[in-house]
Design a protein around this nucleic acid. Structure first.
Lengths: 192, 192
DNA sequence: AAATGACCGAATAACGATTTTGGTCATCTG
DNA sequence: CAGATGACCAAAATCGTTATTCGGTCATTT
């Protein structure tokens, strides 16, 4: 049945977390799903938090591979940035566990979910920061502070994709790409 | 003591709301502070919500006068926009009642506070939208959708002023003005 | 006619009883 | 005898009930 007990536990925990969220999954539940006694879990993981941290790390690794795959060398930076954000949002929607955590954070404010999301966001942010730093070095972008730029870029994207939809018809992908180009790249000023 | 009972009630309610927030102010409390019996309040206001709505309307009027004062004709749009947002943020900080409501909305999620803040934000948003629409007509700004532009402008500003400070040293006014000019007006693209 | 405050029902808080949950450990087993 | 087990524990969450508070009313007073 289980060549590897530890993996069975992790798998069960992932499944339970995706189904019931952090608050909703108990160690007994995980043990049952993994066909393992509760005590056994503590042979591999120090605590519920620890088990969760390991799973979040897994998720971060998955995300990182998505990020690396989504930027193709040779493309203009703005295309890469758009791809990255688009893929991140898709990852958020399709990855059941992440989607559940995102939901739990907003609905229940669970601290653990909060930390996990922040961890993920930090990864995305620093990835974008690196991308921007490279672009500046290659004269594809005006000289700028990469940290602030990455931060503003993410806020801008989230504003367009999520926050606009709270009170208006959602903008489609093409529109978002266009707006991003219009406001963030070209700027609003009359070019003299 | 009170030439005008209604005004005494409104004043007391304002004071109580600023001190204890919406949830924290009771009609008994307001009555006591206004030196008036509770029943009297209902001669002028249909409900606690109604009393609150009147006070919020007062606040909106105050804000509108601030908004109108903060844009001086003849200035470039971007300067006006910066002034407007700067004044709005100052208004938020200095106006005890508004600051309290803002806090209550974030901490307790009180519905009434939520609605009030949204009402205020809508006013600012539509004011900025008008400003932008004028600027476009006067060829001071590229042709653009004023609604989306106003929306993005506000998000951008809030990102710089509040959200950046959550995890970094706050940016000073001059820096914000500069960043706004750099990102929003000129754009990040290499001008060819 | 207008002000008052005792009064009402509904909503909220306070409280203790009960259950659940993360974590342990003496015992069992392969 | 390493490692798996599940009864067990203290702390925390949940639940049901009681007590209090609050928005709003209205008979009475001024």
């Amino acid at each position: 049945m289980d060549g590897n007990r530890q993996q069975a536990i992790v798998d069960a925990a992932k499944k339970s977390l995706a189904l019931f969220g952090y608050k909703g999954t108990t160690m007994d539940q995980v043990a049952k799903m993994a066909n393992v006694s509760k005590g056994s879990i503590y042979n591999f993981f120090a605590s519920k938090e620890d088990l969760f941290a390991v799973i979040v790390e897994d998720m971060v690794r998955e995300l990182e591979s998505v990020l690396h795959a989504s930027v193709q060398n040779g493309q203009p930076v703005f295309t890469s940035l758009h791809h990255v954000m688009s893929d991140v949002l898709q990852f958020r929607q399709e990855h059941e566990l992440l989607a559940k955590l995102y939901h739990e954070m907003h609905e229940l404010g669970t601290a653990a979910a909060n930390d996990a999301i922040r961890h993920i966001d930090d990864k995305v942010l620093s990835f974008i920061e690196r991308l921007i730093r490279q672009a500046v070095q290659q004269d594809q972008l005006k000289p700028c502070d990469p940290e602030i730029t990455a931060f503003l870029f993410m806020r801008f994207y989230i504003a367009l994709v999520s926050e606009w939809s709270e009170r208006h018809e959602p903008l489609d992908n093409e529109m978002i790409s266009h707006l991003f180009q219009f406001y963030f790249v070209q700027g609003l000023g009359i070019s003299s």
